[in-house]
């Protein structure tokens, strides 16, 4: 999980005591590498190959088709709102958990992880049960002409639910390790709470925050289960990219499905690169704190 990657990498030294015979080592490496090839590289290659099977023109046509464009826009809308909401929530939760003592803190820490242990489909169903036509708030909502389920607000809610641990989870250990002394120092020097936050707290957690936002964004873009339940699959209106990929596929429009999927794959590769960079920055930062 995201927090585990903040730890130092295991030492790359070989230990004579567990030095297996040469053929065992080779076998283990072969197994690991072939898994990587079969389960990661092969599908990724297949996606890109199929997407461009009929040339770049066909790819471009598939990506810019009205349904695809609508799905891309919907994905961007849903993701940006969910990420913004979770950044705000993550900051508040991490700040409260790292700096304050309050009853129920332990519960909050545990509950933040809930979305990781709940199946996304169940998460989607929760929102149907609350906001759906026969849900608790359904009658009141339809009376006032507000649509949540089978419309973008429901999809934003479901995505937010599924991705909300990311930012909080990356910030909490950082804040706990760095402590609140910097903030206290800023206050004794006469800074207002506002200045303290923008000039001291935010720079202090910038890399961890970016890291959390990045993971949150990747997960939000790729979310399928929860969004699938609440979207209602209205073509050109409530489909995100992953949902549209499935629709194309079911309609035997393989080129279009793979073209759209290639965009998601590209996003995944970009995320991985950025993630590696941020992890490197974060390690530096934490090492600097420990060095004090």
């Amino acid at each position: 999980m995201s927090t585990r990657t903040l730890e130092a990498p295991p030492l790359a030294q070989t230990n004579a005591a567990i030095d297996e015979p040469r053929w065992v080592r080779h076998l283990l490496m072969a197994v690991a590498l072939s898994f990587l090839a079969i389960f990661l590289l092969l599908p990724l290659g297949q996606v890109l190959f199929s997407a461009f099977a009929k040339g770049a023109g066909a790819w471009w046509a598939a990506v810019t088709a009205p349904d695809s464009r609508a799905a891309i826009c919907m994905s961007l809308l849903v993701t940006s709102l969910a990420v913004a909401a979770n950044t705000l929530f993550g900051l508040c939760a991490a700040w409260a958990i790292a700096y304050f003592h309050f009853p129920g803190k332990r519960w909050l820490v545990t509950l933040i992880d809930l979305p990781f242990s709940v199946s996304p489909v169940i998460a989607g169903l929760i929102f149907i049960l609350i906001f759906g036509a026969r849900g608790w708030a359904g009658p009141w909502l339809s009376e006032h002409g507000i649509r949540i389920v089978f419309a973008w607000p429901g999809m934003v809610l479901a995505t937010t639910f599924v991705t909300f641990p990311f930012v909080a989870r990356t910030l909490i250990p950082l804040l706990q390790q760095k402590g609140s002394q910097h903030e206290e120092a800023a206050l004794t020097l006469g800074a207002s709470g506002w200045r303290m936050f923008w000039q001291v707290s935010l720079p202090k957690m910038r890399w961890a925050l970016l890291y959390g936002v990045l993971l949150c964004n990747a997960r939000a873009m790729g979310e399928f289960g929860a969004v699938s339940v609440v979207s209602g699959h209205i073509r050109g209106r409530t489909n995100t990219m992953p949902l549209q990929v499935e629709l194309f596929y079911n309609d035997y429009q393989f080129e279009a499905a793979f073209a759209l999927a290639s965009l998601l794959a590209a996003l995944a590769l970009l995320t991985m690169g950025l993630k590696a960079f941020l992890e490197w920055r974060l390690r530096d930062e934490l090492a600097a704190t420990r060095g004090h």
Binding site: G179, H182, E184, A185, K204, A288
Partner: peptide, 10 residues
């Protein structure tokens, strides 16, 4: 106020 661990802005 001078803190034990300096609390300099890194």
């Amino acid at each position: 106020f001078v803190f034990q661990h300096y609390a300099l802005f890194e």
